[in-house]
Design a protein around this nucleic acid. Structure first.
Lengths: 129, 129
DNA sequence: ATTATTATTGCAAATGACTTGCAAATATCC
DNA sequence: GGATATTTGCAAGTCATTTGCAATAATAAT
């Protein structure tokens, strides 16, 4: 395990919410090249140490967001289009639903993506004034 | 309503499943420029005649998929990573869930994204041989 | 209808996330 | 400590998507 890889994993663990590759690479710009960040995130995801999803937001465009997988299982998130925070919606609540679909349609589920976008409580208040 | 816009909308309506901009632009390449396809899809989505979501697939990379909104409400889809078909999972089943989250966290939901990826029934059979 | 006004298009160039080839640098193995 | 396998930096390349601008088509006004 190389220095860069360790730092990238730690970057994910320290982030309280999913972080975009752009942000993570910026944060680690003294330490390593963006290409290294991309390569290691792939490595970490393949080795089950990280997960990611793609989200489009009006301000940051379409980007992939990563989080570390230490301990916690599959999570889903709300994303605020105003302050761009993420709110944890808790562990995945879809196993039954997915199983139902598998049975109904005969397909095999590899993965699923779910997220909500909108305006968070604080921004709602701030914007209401 | 211009000729190109009409054709783009018809392209969406004729497609039985969400279609990528790349494919739609290819299909209409005699009629208009890809830039026009992009611009009109934005227009149609803003005017509530189309919806889209972003999906990453190993073969086609990250692309936005559009469908016409005529009649039917919000739908969710399964995407087969082998033959790249989409399977309609039916109308959206999340209104209660979303409402619950709104109440619980105090945010306002603008939109949500849900899709499943995996291997469809036919490909599963074909691959099993 | 004909003209004036506004919206839309094509084309080419730009953007931005992400990938890749390759030679140099670092880890790991023995 | 040297041989071998991985990883890195850098620069160049992809590819979906956007954009500036001048030309064209659609719509409104006379």
């Amino acid at each position: 395990m190389t220095k860069a890889r360790r730092a990238i994993l730690k970057g994910l663990e320290d982030a309280k919410e999913p972080i975009s590759v752009t942000d993570l690479a910026k944060q680690l710009s003294d330490l390593c090249d963006p290409a290294t960040v991309y390569r290691n995130l792939h490595y970490l995801e393949q080795n089950n140490l990280a997960t990611s999803f793609i989200l489009h937001c009006s301000e940051h465009g379409t980007e992939r967001y990563y989080s570390s997988k230490e301990g916690k299982g599959h999570h889903h998130w709300f994303h605020c289009e105003s302050c761009h925070c993420f709110i944890d919606l808790g562990g995945c609540f879809y196993s039954d639903l997915l199983q139902g679909f598998e049975d109904e349609h005969g397909f095999i589920v590899h993965d699923h993506t779910f997220y909500i976008t909108g305006i968070c409580k604080e921004c709602r208040k701030a914007l209401a004034t």
